[in-house]
Amino acid sequence: MSDQAQAGSRYDVADRAARSWGERLTSWESILALLLVAVFVVNGLLSPYFLDLFNLSDATFNFSEKALVALPMALLVLVREIDLSVAATIALASLAMGLCAEAGAGTPVLILVGLCVGLVCGTANGLLVTAVGLPSIVVTIGTMSLFRGIAQVVLGDQAVTKYPSGLGAIGQGYLVDMPPVPLSFALFLAAAAVAAVVLHRTALGRQLYAIGNNPVAARFSGVPVDRIRFGLFAVTGLVSGLAAVLLTGRIGSTRPNIAMGWELEIVTMVVLGGVSIAGGAGTVGGVVLAVFVLGFATFGLSLVNVPGIVINILLGVLLVAAIAVPVVAGRLMGRAPTRD
């Protein structure tokens, strides 16, 4: 009632909230950074080979392709969508490259083919989700089977291995030799920088958060929700195509099971990075940190001969803990989320 008489007068409202150090330290990104330090310390103690510049740079080959796809996936999850067909898209793009390579195409053509196939796959997903109005999880489970299935039909139990050496130079090459920076890792860092700027500094980024937090209110505010979602699916496809180029170049062959199961690893990167599966929350920085945590933890454990499948246990626990800890901690501190 008190503000009735003063309508029109100014209240004293601060421009921004003072952020305490406590809040900063308990932010998800800080926790991930600490986790990353722990990964380096533990692995450094476990194996003398871990803290070696060349080994570490080699390690990035194993996660840069997935990490690249994790960036647009993070944006998709942010707007309450998901693309489970990314690994199958990689397989299909790699297949198309293989067929062209067998027909004698050169490296530039192969790159173009890989990117185009990725873009087409992403566009198909985007159309089914936005124009037809289907749930993305079902659509992309379907296209995952379809894309991977096509690769299986064409390849059977064969493999394409006749790739020009130029493609290998892209997948296995270095942008800078000393310190050693692999091209794929450099691409990931560049893409992460672009994603961070888009998400945190541009009008598009703000609209992504708005859609993720309340798609209805976003639409009522004039945000072109479906166009943006469509664009994200297309970009996710395109980046999957890029990942296919790098991966095919790195391993020099295309088999039907190429990149099998990557969709789950990529989603794990995104969720561990603090992107809420319910949409609307998450940062590029968090995803990048999660990529490093997962990538270097995997590398370190494999140095001491822990089999990959056992490392998966750790990743699974990390994933569940990542979402469970904030909820449980919130409840213990009596901040149970309430409605109204």
Binding site: A203, R206, Q207, Y209, A210, N213, N214, V216, A217, A218, F220, S221, G222, V223, P224, G280, A281
Partner: peptide, 21 residues
């Protein structure tokens, strides 16, 4: 549901229509 993006700040809500335009 239709008006406010409840988890976002006043500034972000207040400028949303302008940003979308």
């Amino acid at each position: 549901v239709q008006g406010a993006v409840l988890p976002m700040g006043i500034r972000e809500n207040l400028t949303l229509a302008g940003i979308a335009a």
